[in-house]
Amino acid sequence: METSDMSMKTASKRRGLRYYFNIYFRIIAQDIKSKLSYRSDFIISLIGMILTDAVEILSFWLVFQNFPSVKGWNFYEMLFLYGFTLVASTPAQCMFDNNWNLRLVVYSGDFIKYCFRPVNLFFYFMSEIFDIKGVGKLFVGLSCIVYSWNKLALPVNFKSLVLLIFGFVFASLIVIAILNLASSACFFIMNSFFVLSLSNTLRGYARYPITIFSGALKFVFTFIAPIAFMAYYPSMAVLRPDNVPVLTWFTPVFGIVFFYISYKVWMKGALSYNGTGN
């Protein structure tokens, strides 16, 4: 009976934020260490990712060779939006990248192994992988923003920097939420890869000003698949400080609410899947 008493005591220990931070950093430190021993994979993947971003910028530039501006947006403003999406995508890329493996472990039945730990399932699954390549995204994104900030001669002051940082934080929650929702599709349907790639296509459109879309799509991109909050709304506070849309100030609300919904859906899917699995 002694053993049972002891573990009951441990179980009742509080698992607070500090506990989770500690675990997280322990796991990712080990993960990074082991990943760096496969250096060629890391370097090729990093080059591939930066190349992708660079080609996207190139395609912007190609379009703007033919048109001086699109609906009142010039090349540098568009570049700013693109840089913003890259920075906002960094946390999703670094910390939630295991979402891309989810369907594989779900279909192979290995997912069950994540369910036996005394920690939050979502946390535990995500903690497994930390993708340092994401830092490349951050670097390219910040370069775009600094370059276009300079070209657009936007003022550099405390207010716009704070707005920018808050914008990054809440926009990144939206990016994570979309990724969570798309990956959790594998709990409900077979071969859900298309959902992920669809969400990727969708995310690709976050870099355009929402004003180019018609009323119905504008509504969808604002309230249903809120990619407009990935770059457009938060950027407006910096890009057009005299003409900030009201919805810009709701970016935190959308970020938090959508992240919370995505978390709930993911968890619900995870626990209901285990019944049908195998």
Partner: peptide, 17 residues
């Protein structure tokens, strides 16, 4: 589930945890 997980250990087949 998480409270219970503290009280148990599991080895599930060939799936290393």
């Amino acid at each position: 589930r998480t409270l219970n997980a503290q009280n148990i250990g599991v080895v599930f087949g060939q799936r290393s945890q």
